[in-house]
Nucleic acid binder design. Sequence first.
DNA 1: GTTCTAGAAC
DNA 2: GTTCTAGAAC
Length: 676
Amino acid sequence: MSWSSGLIKEILNPNNLIISSELGVVIADKYPKAQHHYLVLPLADIPSIFQLNRSHLPLLEELHLLARNVVEVKGARWTDFQVGFHAEPSMQRLHLHVISTDFVSPTLKTKKHWNSFNTELFVPYEKLFALLEKENCFSRLPKSLRDELLNKPLICNQCEFVGKNLPTLKEHLLQHLQDPERTTSDKMEKQEVDEKAYFRDELKRKLKDKRNFLIETDRAVVIKADFPKSQYHFRVVAKEELRDITQLTEEHLPLLDHMMELANQIIEQQDHLESRDFRIGFKVHTFWNRLNLHVLSDDFYSMAMKRPRHWNSFHTELFMPFQMVHMLLSLQGSIESISEEKYNELRNQRTLTCNQCEFSTDLLLDLKAHLYQHWQRKEGEREQKKKMENIVRLLDEAKLNDDDHSVLKLDDAATGTAQPTPLLKAEPETKGTPTQNFRVQIQHGSGNDNLMYGPPVNMMNQLNPNNPFRNTPPLNINSLNPAPQHRPNYRARNPNQHRMPGQHGPRAPWNGPRFPPNPNWNPQNFPQQGFNMFAPGPSINQQGPPQYPYQPIGAGGYGPTGPPNSVRPKWVQKTQQKNNQNPNNVEQKPNLQNPNQQIPHQQKPPAQHPTQYARSNQQNRPYKNPQNRQNSNQNNNPNPQNPQNPNKQKYKNKKPANPNQGAQASQPTNNAVPKT
DNA sequence: GTTCTAGAAC
DNA sequence: GTTCTAGAAC
């Protein structure tokens, strides 16, 4: 039967190999049954699954590693794949299927195709591994069972749906692929709800840790917003058990007054912006289970502004200014909640209008670039103003004290080297505070200096997670900066890593293998080194898409120098800063308080060519001993000895020109395998 | 493994 | 009439 040796012919052609190692190769399935479908084959001549025994376990690990690598090379998510063998293979040469679970493909044509992947006719890798370990062989299924499995109804692999025939099932599978959110299984939805419920109480938890407090009184505290939507973004959080403004009554008016007082306090504690530059108000429909008053600067220039709904939550009726809340409570004694329908309409509103001019757009990224220009202009104006004030002050001093030194100081003022004003002024005691327990936490030398001199919310530091543009390099902005298809810094996501529901895309582990560069990748698609995000962009009213600000990482390490003489928050890096402020710590473990934060990539030399993957070196071989393998099965981490380094690979420098040589290289393993 | 096609199912 | 499946041929 010549057709059944088709795979052996396939792997003899080096052009067919996606990746290879000394022991195995990966090719694409010629008739893929899903969007991704690859076959991992040993170079050793093992006809099928029925010839395997315990001695093959290391080989199987190698094949599994290749499976992981090919998923990574293809830029897909490991969790979207099923990996295993057919219990009833029809092609010669053992082959491990690596197939994405969408099963959307024109070459999926028969019931047999479906059931051979979605019944016990499919033997997952782990199952076979355990079986071989226990029984030292894998036996052919009885014909009756085989026929029964082949004739099973067409049950969807993602929900309860049963197709009346294959075309019906295929149509259904396509819907899953096109609209994964709508068809998310109940289980996933439930999980998501549960996780949200936990985060809803985050503000309550914050109230238990005084280190979070910028200001504390007996009735409320001021904290920084975890996901600041502006350069400065604080929350005044009530200590009382109140969920939101709909629970307020007239009796709470004194509390509101008090919260407003704290809002003013925190605004006064910075002298970068005027108090008129701040917005103070409540979210009408808030996520958090605790009444909190937003105090935020009106630039809305922030990395955390990631979704249109973030914008809309501050720029529609969903945001109620403090005065309005106060007035409604005074007049009618309560505030009605907003209907779910209205809430969804407002939060998903697509037209985003700038809060500072007439500009409007459907695209949040355009708005962000636009806001950046407002911010840049205002920063310039503030700087000019400060400089002028400085000059006037020095002139006054010069009049009083007519000596040469004053002239020198004048020069300093003009070049911006004069002493910077501390950002947050210490206010040891606030005059006339109504509440007895009121105290201001931020004091010189109180151990909170990092809060005082550190920028309150955002800083223009590429390494800082709060930098508005730090994790929005132009990779996703096709219209402005076409991205290379394969991102050279990409690393496969560790399936065990914590991931928020609904968060898309892979989250790379720190030092796993990267996939090698795409030969078609053109480095010119990336912004040039030295691109200055502070260079003056086109004017706001100018036609055409705005230039997206971008600062390459590594140029100077601490971000842009800013417009000449700008007075923006200077960040004094402290070793004791919290994780979400310390770039050296964030990469060690995911920051649960800020799960969306991205972590800077570390550069590592990539492999040279997709086909040049090699098996991992012995030190880092997964499942090196049975104990490790057992642990690893529990947490699905192939390298339990080194959890930071789950998939470390040694890339081969050159691959055999002829795969047969590779087969010979693997001879020892081959010899170790008694053929049956 | 796929392709082809007769005949069942609709 | 068309669509779909299952078995034979490769």
